[in-house]
């Protein structure tokens, strides 16, 4: 039975890939499609997992029905052959809608207090413009976090993705002080959200989380394997986040696709804190030609989120 299920899984993966190819060939398969589906053949295990639809809704799906590929821990060290992933974030379009954060948290079964993607309100100096700054992991090419890890629990793969294996992680938190971008989060206790995910653990999914270990943004390799861009990129209503293969020189936010080198050239893309020498794989497009006023970013926020920004120079200046 299990074998059959596996076969089924393989089949559907093949179908997935095929579908990807055909999509590549131009069938306009609705972009509003779902990460969850009903398998009319699948055996029910009776256990529920929360999954996310791309329109941002959570639904409960039987565990046996959720099938993003989860590679083994050993496999997760290798990386997707012939690829090197890159992210481009267009600061001119971000209005702190926080859909990226929410989609990421749901996709990775994270509690509210853990954010792989964080949105900052930055202002480089007093007279420069404030802007919203979504910050994933930069998946640096010279990753200090990986260098300092005493047990090899965090590693950089051939496709440039830096992952954490929480089965290996001893929770010394050295990587958290090693990262100059405050990217990593620690599980200070066992969060109930970890239990929602009943699939076997894979570093590629960064889920289920584990108390006393470090985790962070993983560029969603499990989604990449089925031809999808990360949760944050597809969830963003503004299309702020572009993702792609830098060797293919292409990035996409799901609706628009650009030549990476041209985009960076034309829009003067840059990497944050380049001087630190970490060589990030995330590029930013400067916040020019804004589509939204910075204030729009406070729009529909919960109070607790709004409060985060109350001590920023911008907020202090505007609300005396």
């Amino acid at each position: 039975m299990e074998e059959e299920l596996n076969k089924d899984q393989k089949n559907s993966r093949r179908q997935f890939l095929k579908k990807g190819l055909i999509a590549g060939a131009g069938v306009a398969i609705g972009s509003g499609l779902l990460a969850a589906y009903v398998d009319t053949n699948a055996a029910e295990t009776g256990e529920k997992v929360k999954v996310l639809t791309t329109d941002g809704e959570i639904m409960e799906v039987d565990r046996g029905l959720l099938k993003l590929p989860r590679v083994s821990r050993e496999e997760s060290h290798k990386g997707i052959p012939g690829r090197k992933f890159v992210m481009v974030i267009d600061l001119g379009k971000c209005k702190n809608a926080r859909k990226c954060v929410e989609a990421c948290q749901k996709g990775h079964h994270l509690p509210q207090s853990q954010e792989f993607m964080k949105v900052y309100l930055l202002q480089d100096s007093e007279k420069t413009a404030p802007y919203w700054f979504p910050k994933p992991c930069f998946h640096c090419d010279n990753p200090l976090c990986v260098s300092v890890c005493p047990v090899g629990a965090t590693y950089k793969r051939s496709d440039g993705i830096v992952l954490i294996d929480n089965e290996r992680c001893i929770g010394c938190k050295f990587c958290m002080t090693g990262c100059p971008y405050s990217t990593r989060v620690f599980a200070w206790k066992h969060y109930p959200e970890f239990d929602e995910d009943k699939e076997p653990y894979s570093p590629e999914a960064s889920s289920p989380g584990k108390e006393g270990t470090v985790s962070k943004c993983d560029f969603c390799p499990d989604l990449i394997r089925v031809g999808k861009i990360p949760y944050c990129a597809s969830a963003c209503p503004m299309g702020v986040i572009y993702f792609g293969d830098v060797d293919e020189d292409t990035v996409t936010n799901g609706t628009e696709t650009y030549q990476f080198s041209k985009l960076i050239h034309d829009r003067a893309g840059y990497r944050y804190l380049e001087t630190l020498g970490t060589r990030p794989c995330v590029y930013y497009l400067p916040p020019v030609d804004r589509q939204f006023e910075v204030d729009r970013g406070f729009g529909d926020l919960e109070e607790s989120v709004k409060d985060r920004y109350k001590d920023t120079p911008y907020s202090k200046k505007n609300k005396p």
Binding site: I22, I29, Y37, V38, D39, T40, N41, A42, E57
Partner: peptide
């Protein structure tokens, strides 16, 4: 090439139907 997408809508939930 024809591609038909089958979804099940139940209340506010939309699910794709597999193996149909």
């Amino acid at each position: 090439n024809l591609s038909a997408t089958l979804t099940i809508k139940r209340g506010d939930m939309t699910l794709a139907l597999e193996n149909a």
